[in-house]
Nucleic acid binder design. Structure first.
Lengths: 142, 142
DNA sequence: CGCCACTAGTTGAGGTTGTCAACTATACGG
DNA sequence: CCGTATAGTTGACAACCTCAACTAGTGGCG
């Protein structure tokens, strides 16, 4: 379905280097999940939630690109560990709002610390390169 | 365990933008796996193999950062679809070399086309930015 | 009001992933 | 030749993920 599109050799190589970057970071992600007693999907789910703004379960399913029934299980796990609560919605009795608990917020914070940890390859760049990289990516992603 | 390290705001933001890039691409990855009748892990496994240079199963386990017993199952799946063959090694009768079949190589090619497809955000950069991006990432990843 | 189509979430079946522990077969050093 | 180490498989078990079926609740429309 996806068709081959012509790309410059430069951007092609850049993209492949970005791929290597992510591959390098993968073990760290799995590590923090294990450290916190979460499975990777549970970790992504918690990270996708916002402690300030509860959302319906459906919303989480959309953000994770998965089926609602899958979210049921994920949330079961998070709720069992006291990281998230299902709270009935006031206006629509069908929906359950996902509320991040106090402890859930702490765990989520810890996850974010690790996820946002800049990989050594990037950290070792010169200050100028770091700024240039940021500026280019800003232009790319708006 | 992983501790917070000081990073410049610039590289921090750059890294977070890279994260957004990957999130954008995820659906495409899942899509091509489905299109080819593969599960994502099977797809990664096939992609990790080199049609030119067969490797022992152990080697694949290392590259995928997973247990050998897991590789057994993955390879079972790929072999059942005729994409990979287990071939005895000449020098060590314990090891099975993983040989990508003709059809396996075609499927792998298709996977790579999609994986290497540069996301629109990067493709829309100016030629100069594309080259600069490549050069910076080269310096980062050596 | 009363029907009907639609939506949120759960449940259960079924296939896959991933880990660990136990096992077989083979290699290799002393 | 014996002991230790390694490659791969198997089985048990927990989790993921999708689909189809179901319940409960919503909201439009005659």
């Amino acid at each position: 379905m996806t068709s081959s599109v012509k790309h410059s050799a430069a951007v092609q190589e850049a993209w492949s280097l970005v791929g290597r970057l992510f591959w390098q970071v993968r073990p760290r992600m799995l590590g923090v999940a294990a450290e916190l007693g979460l499975t990777p999907p549970q970790m992504f789910a918690l990270r996708a939630l916002d402690p300030e703004h509860p959302v319906p379960m459906r919303e989480l399913a959309v953000q994770l690109h998965c089926d609602s029934s899958n979210v049921t299980g994920l949330v079961d796990g998070l709720e069992a560990q006291g990281l998230v609560e299902r709270r009935p919605d006031e206006h629509d009795r069908r929906v359950r709002m996902l509320v991040v608990t106090e402890r859930g917020a702490q765990v989520r914070q810890r996850i974010n610390e690790v996820v946002e940890e800049v990989p050594p390859a990037l950290a070792s760049l010169s200050a100028g390169d770091q700024r240039a990289l940021r500026d280019i990516l800003r232009r790319a992603l708006g």
